[in-house]
Design a protein around this nucleic acid. Structure first.
Lengths: 214, 214
DNA sequence: GTCTATAGCTGGATAGAC
DNA sequence: GTCTATCCAGCTATAGAC
C-alpha cells in the first residue's frame, strides 16, 4: 500500500534486470491473473532467479502493483496524446477523432487494457476504485465537457445526459476489445474481424440511431 | 472435461449437502475467481469438511465447471423467459421489451453474470469459446433476426449490420452492470445509480442518436 | 546484484474409520 | 455421506555465499 508509491516513482531508475522483470510480470499478470502466476514463472521467463525478483520488489503484491501502475501510466499517457492531437474542429469532429483513436489505442496495447480490466473486476478492493478515480476521472470529465460543448452549440441533442453519451463512447469500444475473441465465434458477427469498420459504424449508429426517421 | 456432463445432468438429484457446496462455490468463484478460492474456503463457508467436497465432485475444476454450468443454465433460462414473454407488437416494441428485461435480468442475478464474465475473460481457453457458442449463439441469432425483421419492415435503417445493432443492445447493458460499482465514483456519472433510467435513456439514444437533426 | 539452498506454509487430493 | 488424519507438490519469502 504505502510502499508502492515509493517503488514506482523511481521506475525510470530501475536496472535493466528489474525492467525486464516488470515487463514479463505485466504480460503474465494480464494474461492469467494475479493468483495464477507464480514468482517462479516470472523468474523463468525473465531469465533471472527467484531471489533476484525479491531483491527488486518487496513482495509479489509489490511487483503486481508496480506492473499495474506501469499499465495505468501507459493508458493515461495514451489518452493524453489523443486529447492533445484533437483538432480544433467542431465538437462532433473532435468526438469522432477521440472515439477512433481511443479504439485504436485499446487495440494496440491489449496488455495494459487487460490488466486494468482484471483489476476493475475486483470491485471489492479499494484499489480498483481509487485506481479508476485517479487515472480515469480526469480524462472522463474532459470527454464529458466535450459533449456538453456540442450540446450548448446545438449540434448534439440536449435531452441526453452528457456523461451517458461519454460513457457509451468509451464502453462500446472497451466491450468490443474485451469480447472480440469470443465474438468471432458467434454467427453473423463478422464485424468482429474488422475493428476499423466497427468503429466508424458504431459512431454512425450512436450519432443517428438505428431507427428510421423517413 | 468428459465428466462434467455426467455430474451436472443429475444436478437435481444432488443431496442437499452438495447443493449448498455448489451454491457457496458459485458465489466465491464469481467474487474472487478460480485461483483465489481454495477448497478450504468453500468447505468452511458451506460448513462441511474438505474431504466431503471431493466426495461430491471429482476435483476443484469439476466443482468449478458444475458451478459454471449452473450459472449458464440460469442465464439461458432467463433469456428464454424474456423471449417467450415478448408481445407480438412491432419489432421496436419487442426490441425495447427485450432490452429492458435483459438489463433487469443482469441486475437481478449478478453472481451468474459475473462468473460467466470471468470465464469469458480467459479467452485463451477453449472452454470460454465453446461456452459462448453453445449458450449464447442461439439467443443472439434470434435477437439478430428480430432486428432484421424490423429492417425489412422499414422501421429500422437498413444501412446498419443487424448483428452490430444486436451486439450494442447487449453490450451496453453488460458493460453497465460490469462497471457500475466503479462508475459511481466517476464525476458526473449519476446515472449509475438509476439502472432503470439508464436503460430507457440508452435505448432512446441507440434509437435516435445523440446528434441533432433539426 | 545475483545466485543456491532452504525454511515454513498452504494448496489439492487420498485413505480409511464411522 | 461425513468425518479426521495425512501425503506431497508447489508456493512465497529469507539466509547467506559470491
Amino acid at each position: 500500500m504505502t510502499r508502492a508509491n515509493h517503488d514506482s516513482d523511481a521506475i525510470c531508475a530501475l536496472s535493466p534486470g528489474a525492467l525486464s522483470i516488470l515487463d514479463v510480470a505485466e504480460r503474465l499478470f494480464a494474461e492469467k491473473g494475479f493468483d495464477a502466476v507464480s514468482i517462479n514463472d516470472i523468474a523463468q521467463q525473465a531469465d533471472v532467479s527467484k531471489a533476484n525478483i525479491f531483491h527488486h520488489f518487496k513482495s509479489k503484491e509489490g511487483l503486481y502493483l508496480a506492473a499495474l501502475k506501469s499499465a495505468c501510466e501507459h493508458a493515461a499517457r495514451a489518452l493524453d496524446d489523443v486529447e492533445q492531437s484533437l483538432s480544433s474542429d467542431s465538437p462532433q469532429a473532435q468526438l469522432q477523432a477521440f472515439f477512433t483513436q481511443h479504439l485504436q489505442e485499446l487495440l494496440a496495447s491489449p496488455r495494459s487494457t487487460r490488466l486494468i480490466q482484471r483489476e476493475l473486476l475486483e470491485s471489492g478492493s479499494e484499489r480498483g476504485r481509487r485506481l479508476a478515480e485517479e487515472v480515469f476521472s480526469e480524462n472522463f470529465s474532459r470527454l464529458v465537457e466535450l459533449v456538453r460543448t456540442g450540446q450548448v452549440q446545438g449540434q448534439f441533442r440536449q435531452e441526453f445526459d452528457a456523461a451517458l453519451v461519454a460513457f457509451l463512447l468509451i464502453g462500446t469500444s472497451v466491450f468490443f476489445t474485451q469480447t472480440s475473441a469470443v465474438l468471432q465465434h458467434l454467427p453473423g458477427a463478422e464485424f468482429a474481424k474488422f475493428p476499423d469498420d466497427y468503429g466508424s459504424a458504431v459512431f454512425q449508429l450512436l450519432s443517428h440511431g438505428f431507427q428510421n426517421t423517413t
